[in-house]
Amino acid sequence: MTEEECKQIVVKIIADIAPDEDLNDLKDDVRLRDQLDLDSMDFLDIVMELRKQHGIEVPEEDYPKLASLDSCAEYLTPKFLEKQSV
């Protein structure tokens, strides 16, 4: 699992949640909510889809780490790797 693959997973989840958004030129270092029309419920959905689809738990205090694609990759990649190694 590379950071790039991890970003793709997140983008895929966003595409499921918000099929009406254009995700083609998402910038990695800009906060998602500044580029997309996502509200707090949509972020809840991202967290829940990570759990449902990939068994990844994001505790509440870590939610801010999902702010941009870069920060998602930084935070989630180790979690995906950990999952793969068990």
């Binding site: 996502l38 419920m41 829940m48 509440e60 939610y63």
Partner: peptide
Amino acid sequence: ISMANRHVLSRKSDKSLEKMT
């Protein structure tokens, strides 16, 4: 939807979610 979210799916996490957005 919103009552399911609020009372079952995200009982305690409302505040952190608000902060994010």
